[in-house]
């Protein structure tokens, strides 16, 4: 989708000599419209393909969610276009704008689906579990059907993703772009080979810090949440 927006922006910049800002905005709008058609067809298609479970398709759900999806899509596309535009024009990256946007789009898709929405299956679809108690598989399928007020269904589970998953996805993508570019900006390889190797070393140090951070979190979680099962082998030996 970002590629769509970028292509349109490229056309506008080159053909109509519009200002880049306007072109990027317009490209993002078109991309949002295309995104909306994808959202609508997949929502209706999946529901219709599960006819045997007798779930009706709610048109009000589509009407109220599609503009929101378009809005988020617009924001995402526009931000990625700005990043790509800056990389091409200011930092002098050799890849064309459309291709950079394509690559960042794939990357943000990977990050988003691996960080932001991991909670969608673990949130309110499982009723009442104590925080930190792990996820018992037998809770699965214990679907919450009624919310505090009115109906509750799968669409509302995105609430958590929007409040916590979305921002951390943004942080993750920002960290990727920032750390990836920062090391070559501080240690500019154009100033000589040694500087280029410094940038590589800086990157490796960043990765090592992240590994240690992950290990610290793991240790903390283990001590806070505790083991979920009794250690049978120790009992046997005792």
């Amino acid at each position: 989708m970002c590629s769509v927006g970028a292509a349109i922006a490229t056309v506008l910049i080159s053909e109509f000599t519009l200002s880049p800002l306007f072109a990027l905005v317009f490209g993002a709008i078109i991309a949002a419209c295309v995104h909306a058609t994808f959202a609508v067809t997949s929502t209706m298609g999946r529901c219709a393909s599960q006819k045997r479970f007798k779930q009706p398709i709610y048109l009000d759900m589509i009407r109220s969610h599609t503009p929101v999806i378009m809005g988020y899509s617009f924001i995402t596309t526009f931000c990625i276009l700005v990043v790509s535009y800056l990389m091409t024009v200011v930092l002098g990256h050799p890849f064309p704008l459309t291709m950079l946007a394509f690559i960042w789009g794939i990357t943000v898709g990977a990050i988003g689906s691996s960080t932001g929405d991991v909670h969608y299956g673990a949130e309110r679809e499982f009723q009442q579990f104590e925080f930190g108690s792990g996820l018992n598989a037998s809770n699965s399928g214990n679907i919450v059907r009624y919310a505090e007020s009115g109906l509750r269904n799968g669409y509302d589970n995105s609430w958590f993703c929007a409040k916590f998953g979305g921002p951390v996805t943004g942080i993750a993508f920002g960290m990727t772009v920032f750390l990836g570019s920062w090391i070559t900006t501080v240690f500019d390889p154009a100033r000589g080979l040694a500087q280029g190797w410094y940038s590589v070393i800086a990157g490796v140090i960043i990765v090592l810090i992240l590994i240690i951070w992950n290990w610290k979190i793991e240790v903390k979680a283990r001590s806070d949440f505790g083991p979920y099962k009794e250690d049978k082998s120790e009992e046997a030996s005792a």
């Binding site: 691996s114 960080t115 792990g134 951390v168 993750a172 979190i217 903390k220």
Partner: peptide, 20 residues
Amino acid sequence: IMIAVTMIVGTWVYVYGVGC
């Protein structure tokens, strides 16, 4: 860097969000 950042943020969500 990309994959390490993705994994560390995933860990945040798993530990502080989901609680496992």
